[in-house]
Design a binder for these strands. Structure first.
Length: 514
RNA sequence: GGCCCGUUCGUCUAGGGGUUAGGACGCGUCCCUUUCACGGACGAAACACGGGUUCGAUUCCCGUACGGGCUACCA
């Protein structure tokens, strides 16, 4: 019996999803994938994709992070249709710091206090620390502010009413905490994971409103998701443990029926080593674009700078956790958006494989028009000190493209076209060069010299003609004599590009040296 | 430590009560190729372990192990 995918059930709500990063640094590939899945889901259902900036922690704000997030989404081709950097919609503003001015967080917090589901806590940092130490000393395994410990703390539940009033009026530092029941089963259905059950004894009295008046993530995202009519909350697995608290908040607000459906994505893991992917892992980039963190001396290189095409980057990211259900691996974003569904998103974390990422890029590079590659290579060539006309560069790119995974490899693969060899691959020479070789290649050179029509066909024919006289000639030797190295692009094609005079010059020089 | 989530080739994954457990990357061999690639063929390579349930479990259930996440007035 196949059940109907939860995410496809007929819904009263229009699909509206959001990507809601905090501007605390560069957006890494894990975040990009979360954004991607949101984007794909929205497109699939003709819904809205919103970018909301969760900047409720002023102490962690990083200069440039927000702009980076916007730029990264644009580069990846998964631009939201509403939100910071992408145009206002009916639910502006889209920065929580600005939304705070609307008074909405306070309003919902007040509602919770009024209904007895939240309370004021006046404890100082030191008092909290003391509490934790005491609990640890008493061998309490998970020290937390909860139904038990709150009884010994300074809050509106334990303090006399008039004292609370006095504290409130005097503007004493306070937070608003969620009053989590002591022992109650909380269950919720995750689109990807199915039913998850947690006992409320495992949930602490989460701070809802901080002492600086800002909401925490827990309150803010719920208020915003409700206000912005979000239908599905799609986020990383790291949020799973706090989801029960969120369920409680919706419930106490009387909004459980309007709650977005939850989808917790599996994490992207480090290929070696352990844990979530991190920017310290230097073997491959973790950022889409290069990221210069104001707190770091060196910028982190991005996939773009590493030579990846955004199509390739997004493609491999999508396949980290999602599967189309057939053997297709190469997808455009639009193609994915036709078929994406959370039903086909895995539960388990995926290690990122840098090798396969390269292969993906190679696939996309091969699909590129030669002229497009030529346009990219032209300035590179100029930088190396060589100028050629477009037709020449076009031919060169055609020749080299099948051999590389990145455009930046064009130079290394084909620089022999432009630079005469200084030395000759020793392995090939010692193995294949003999007394007869000099005579043989002398003959080849002579024949080349008499050639008027320096084309691939003519070169090939001439080589064959020479062989008719001398017997089989080792082509790799010809390669080494003219380019210096054992491998490279199609030899005769390359010689055609190198030109008659230069080819002969190189042969004469090699013959003189060997 | 506690809680939550997870576990199919090295990696990404398909599959799912009875299959020769499929594909892709990478690796190896061969073919094509007078060079280099591409391409093609083939190969090595996986159901973490132990108990159930069942005629039959890799698939369902329970444990164990392992991995990951969370455990802040951070998100």
């Amino acid at each position: 019996m196949k059940k109907i995918p939860l995410s496809l059930c007929p819904m009263e709500k229009r699909v509206r999803v959001r990507f809601a990063p905090s501007p605390t640094g560069g957006l890494h590939m894990g975040g990009v994938r979360t954004a991607l899945f949101n984007y794909l889901f929205a497109k699939r259902h003709g819904g809205d994709f919103i970018l909301r900036i969760e900047d409720t922690d002023q102490t962690r704000f990083v200069e440039g992070a927000e702009e980076y997030i916007v730029a990264a989404l644009k580069w990846c081709g998964i631009a939201p249709n509403e939100g910071v950097g992408f145009g206002d919609g009916p639910h502006k503003p889209y920065r929580q710091s600005e939304r705070k001015e609307l008074g909405i967080y306070q309003k919902y917090a007040d509602q919770l206090i009024l209904s007895g589901h939240a309370y004021y806590a006046f404890d100082t940092e030191e008092e909290l620390e003391t509490m934790r130490k005491k609990l640890e000393a008493a061998k309490v395994v998970a020290p937390q502010y909860n139904a038990v410990t709150r009884q010994n703390m300074r809050n509106s539940l334990t303090l006399p009413e008039d004292e609370v009033k006095k504290l409130l009026e005097s503007g004493a530092k306070k937070v608003v905490r969620l009053k989590v029941p002591r022992n109650e089963e909380i269950r919720f259905e995750d689109i990807i994971r199915g039913w998850v059950v947690v006992n409320s004894s495992q949930v602490d009295d989460k701070v809802l409103l901080k002492s600086d008046g800002m909401p925490t993530y827990h309150l803010a995202h719920i208020v915003d998701d409700i206000e912005m009519k979000i239908s599905h909350a799609v986020r990383g697995e790291e949020w799973l443990p706090s989801a029960p608290a969120h369920i409680l908040i919706y419930r106490y607000l009387g909004l459980e029926s309007e709650m977005p459906k939850l989808a917790h994505l599996p994490l992207i893991l480090n290929p070696d080593g352990k844990g979530k992917i991190s920017k310290r892992e230097s073997r491959f980039p973790v950022f889409p674009l290069s990221w210069k963190d104001p707190r770091e001396a060196e910028p982190f290189i991005g996939y773009k700078e590493a030579g990846y095409y955004p199509e390739a980057f997004v493609n491999i990211l999508a396949l980290l956790g999602w599967n189309p259900g057939n053997n297709q691996e190469l997808f455009t974003v639009d193609e994915m958006a036709q078929i994406f569904d959370f039903e086909r998103v895995n539960k388990s974390g995926a290690k990122f494989d840098p090798e396969k990422a390269k292969w993906f890029n190679q696939q996309y590079l091969r699909k590129k028009a030669d002229q497009e590659l030529a346009d990219v290579f032209k300035p590179v060539l100029k930088e190396k000190g060589f100028e050629r006309d477009n037709a020449f560069i076009l031919e060169f790119c055609k020749l080299v493209k099948e051999k590389v995974q990145f455009v930046h490899e064009f130079w290394d693969q084909g620089k022999y076209v432009f630079i005469a060899p200084e030395s000759y691959d020793e392995k090939v020479i010692t193995k294949k060069w003999n007394e007869k070789s000099k005579e043989t290649f002398g003959k080849v050179t002579e024949k080349f010299k008499s050639l008027n029509d320096w084309t691939i066909e003519a070169i090939t024919k001439t080589f064959h003609d020479a062989e008719a006289e001398t017997g089989k000639i080792d082509m790799q030797l010809l390669r080494v004599l003219t380019t210096g190295v054992a491998g490279g692009p199609q030899l005769f094609d390359m010689l055609a590009l190198i030109g008659k005079d230069e080819t002969i010059k190189r042969l004469d020089r090699a013959l003189g040296k060997l």
